[in-house]
Write a protein that binds this DNA or RNA. Structure first.
Lengths: 137, 137
DNA sequence: CCGTATCCTAAAGGATACTG
DNA sequence: CAGTATCCTTTAGGATACGG
């Protein structure tokens, strides 16, 4: 299998090499991963957990607008994929703590980069939207 | 093997402060951006376009599994947000070419990083899934 | 407090047919 | 070729109620 590490990709073509075509195949396992993690709530949950272990309702409070069901589902999905660790703390009342797994931590810099990008280019995006909407009507 | 403990990761990545709480507010404009671009097809379309200007049906062929409707919708969304440029080339027959805008290019390194991450940790993710499924039944 | 279960509605998205 | 329009099925996801 080809070396896909960031270093290798940089070495191959420093500027902006196209990603490999196999990545778009339905059979490529990376598709199954992206289907799981490339959504808004996953990203935001990991962002919250980047601040340290957090309990269920605390996450819910921080993530304005998420329903209990969606949070529960997304957390289990993240846990299943090994990105999040779930720990039951004691018993009266039940307390459950979620935290990033080591694997989850490896994803963090990339998500953080996306957040930073969003804030950095917000004005450009907004201008583009207004221009587009003006063209269309 | 690299040290993957949370502590080590925090030390290893210079950009590791928690993301700002405002990022999770419903009013934060970054939410509106993430809602738009943080999905699987957007990511994959940008990946295809990273290889250079591409025509509609060529993109469709490369993105196994996408419907014409979804492709059309996603392309327009990306165009509206200023990430993708649309150009009508000639008239008989009609040819339309999509390419990354300068703004779209700024997003590319981050998406590429996500792709690389996916491939790099695929085995760990797979193992986590199997372990989880075994625990649950 | 931390969920699961149920119901129900809104939205995503595929298939197909048709147009410039 | 590059779409739009329509239909229709599937899914996501909110609201609510209940259980451990």
């Amino acid at each position: 299998m080809e070396d896909l590490s960031p270093e290798a990709m940089e070495q191959a073509t420093p500027l902006s090499p196209p990603m490999r075509p196999e990545c778009f195949s339905q059979d490529c396992p990376s598709r199954g991963v992206l289907d799981q993690i490339a959504d808004k709530w996953s990203l935001m949950i990991l962002a919250v957990l980047s601040g340290g272990p957090t309990r269920f309702n605390e996450i819910k409070r921080r993530l304005e607008g998420i329903s209990q069901k969606s949070l529960s589902q997304t957390l289990r999905k993240l846990e299943r994929n090994g990105l999040v660790r779930r720990e039951v703390l004691n018993s009266a009342p039940v307390a459950v703590q979620y935290s990033l797994s080591p694997l989850g931590h490896t994803l963090l810099p990339h998500f953080r980069a996306l957040y930073c990008w969003t804030h950095e280019y917000l004005d450009q995006i907004d201008a583009a939207r207004q221009a587009f909407d003006a063209r269309q009507g």
